[in-house]
């Protein structure tokens, strides 16, 4: 990630000042040294590069190949062409259900989460005392929000005998098992994702800090109220950060696995209402031994996420404002 430009070494600077080597020779030596440095750099990169090649790219390509076969994980495989891809849409209602669940989850929870994160960032940006502490506290859920422990806790909170129902009981409302009801189970996981607003919030906070105070001062003098300032200064200048958070959280949300896996007991229960895309891929691959089909589904997800991200970038022209245009 760091700058790749070669920086002059102190030794080099000194050899230049001594004037003992002819210019052409110095240039040759410098070139040779640079080549050697590049070689060193590649050697240092080699372990990482090897890892990328063998642990990431290799399996990636292998799974692409497998997605055109009926590979069963513990048996041989046969080339089936596009069968796996057509089967998803013609002969697998559970796949469509998983796709539907995940889509609802992504398109409801991500906007909610970002709105929440932005609101809190705005509140914290007003110079609350002990900002660092608040920031850390609100960031915590992001750290362990996708852990098994929190998902187990979620089961308890939204269970029949859980915190939510006890709270509702105070107002005389009798609740029910939110995670056992097929029509509400998915929403408990949406809430869980919204709750992990900490990481976009921290990024928003940093973005808010980038906006020069002078803009607000000028607007204030011109008589713009707080609302106006928000919509005409904060929001436009924050759009690149919003865009970044949106892309990041969309990709993240499509890959959600742990929460749904634990809350549903690993099978999308009740009645497949929490069957997430990645979970279905896992079930097909490792429970049903249909690794070829699972690979095809995984690649289709890559396609969805890629298309969505591309669409986002295209749309960004119309609403993302970079200071320089």
């Amino acid at each position: 990630m760091s700058s790749t430009q070669a920086r002059p070494y102190p030794a080099e600077a000194r050899s230049g000042s001594e004037h003992t080597v002819p210019a052409a020779q110095a240039a040759r030596m410098r070139r040779r040294r640079r080549r050697r440095e590049t070689l060193t750099a590649y050697l240092f990169l080699a372990p990482w590069f090897g890892g990328l090649l063998f642990i990431t790219v290799g399996p990636l390509l292998a799974s692409l190949y497998l997605s055109f076969t009926d590979y069963s994980l513990i048996g041989g495989s046969r080339w089936v062409g596009l069968d796996n891809y057509t089967r998803m849409f013609t002969d697998d209602p559970r796949f469509l259900k998983a796709l539907q669940n995940t889509t609802v989850y992504v398109f409801v929870s991500v906007p909610l989460q970002l709105t929440f994160a932005l609101l809190l960032a705005l509140l914290l940006d007003r110079g609350v005392r002990g900002l660092a502490i608040y920031r850390s506290i609100y960031y915590l859920p992001s750290l362990f929000g996708s852990s098994v422990a929190i998902a187990v806790l979620w089961r308890k909170v939204f269970g029949d005998d859980g915190l939510v129902n006890h709270f509702l009981g105070l107002f005389g409302i009798s609740g029910h098992s939110w995670i056992g009801d097929p029509s509400t189970a998915l929403w408990t996981i949406v809430v869980l994702n919204v709750w992990t607003f900490g990481s976009p919030m921290v990024i928003f906070l940093a973005g808010l800090r980038q906006i020069p105070v002078s803009y607000y001062e000028a607007a204030g003098i011109d008589g713009a109220g707080k609302m106006r300032q928000f919509f005409h200064i904060t929001l436009p200048l924050l759009t690149p950060v919003i865009f970044f958070n949106l892309i990041l959280q969309l990709i993240h949300a499509f890959q959600s696995f742990t929460q749904a896996f634990v809350v549903s007991g690993g099978n999308g229960s009740p009645s497949d209402s929490t069957l997430f895309y990645t979970m279905y891929v896992y079930i097909k691959g490792f429970n049903s031994f249909e690794m070829g089909y699972a690979s095809a589904m995984a690649w289709f997800l890559v396609l969805i996420v890629a298309c969505l991200t591309a669409l986002n970038f295209l749309m960004s022209k119309y609403w993302v404002f970079y200071g320089d245009n």
């Binding site: 029949d160 995670i179 229960s269």
Partner: peptide
């Protein structure tokens, strides 16, 4: 037995 919702919840406990 408990209602359907609680039964569903217990089913994965």
């Amino acid at each position: 037995s408990p209602d359907a919702n609680l039964s569903n919840e217990l089913g994965s406990d």
